[in-house]
């Protein structure tokens, strides 16, 4: 069983950072809502506030790791220009997609949107983590802080959803391939 280096790093970008960041939203939204809802009956303990703070810091790290690995590692492979006369475009995903009118919108809409909108997520979640750490349960007083935090969380989630969904589709129609092969499991052939 083997995988190419580019495949592996693309999986790390999408599944390791992006999908994990996306999954973490459920916990963040539930906990932020719980501590800051106007009708919250119980003040969170210092331990619970500390846990939320570290949870959000982990999300911030994942968000930045996702956009930085995407922009500086995977995207250059995606947009690599094929040498003149190349007929097999399988190693040049952008050009492979643009070579057919049936797939070109995956680039012109999907990748063009994904590459920019994804950057909203780390900016938004960094702000959310900072404000939450600074104010704790005081987010609810005044309520405007809470409104802003929840709105930016929703936008970060939506931006990640767009980037993640198009990333998955793009990798289906024009996967980033190439680089040295990494052997994960060596299976002995039976005679």
């Amino acid at each position: 069983m083997e995988i190419s280096l580019r495949d592996l790093l693309t999986v790390l970008h999408g599944m390791g950072f992006g999908a994990l960041f996306m999954l973490a939203f459920a916990g963040a939204v539930a906990e932020l809502y719980r501590i800051s809802a106007p009708a919250a009956a119980i003040l969170p303990t210092p331990g619970a506030q500390r846990l939320l703070r570290w949870y959000l810091i982990a999300m911030v790290v994942l968000a930045w790791a996702a956009v930085l690995s995407g922009t500086y590692m995977v995207y250059p492979w995606y947009r690599a220009v094929p040498p003149a006369g190349t007929t097999d475009l399988s190693l040049y995903p952008k050009f492979l997609l643009n070579s057919s009118p049936d797939t070109s919108a995956w680039h012109s809409l999907g990748m063009e949107w994904k590459e920019h909108v994804a950057w909203l997520a780390p900016i938004a979640i960094t702000m959310v983590a900072y404000v939450t750490a600074k104010y704790g349960a005081g987010l609810t007083r005044p309520r405007h802080l809470r409104t802003a935090v929840m709105a930016f969380v929703v936008v970060a989630f939506a931006a990640t959803g767009v980037a993640g969904a198009f990333g998955a589709f793009l990798n289906k129609y024009a996967p980033v391939r190439g680089g040295p092969a990494i052997h994960i499991i060596q299976v002995q052939e039976r005679e």
Binding site: L43, K134, Y135, G136, G138, L139
Partner: peptide, 10 residues
């Protein structure tokens, strides 16, 4: 603990 006393500026 609840952060009620902090100014909202930051």
């Amino acid at each position: 603990l609840s952060g009620e006393t902090l100014p909202n500026g930051p």
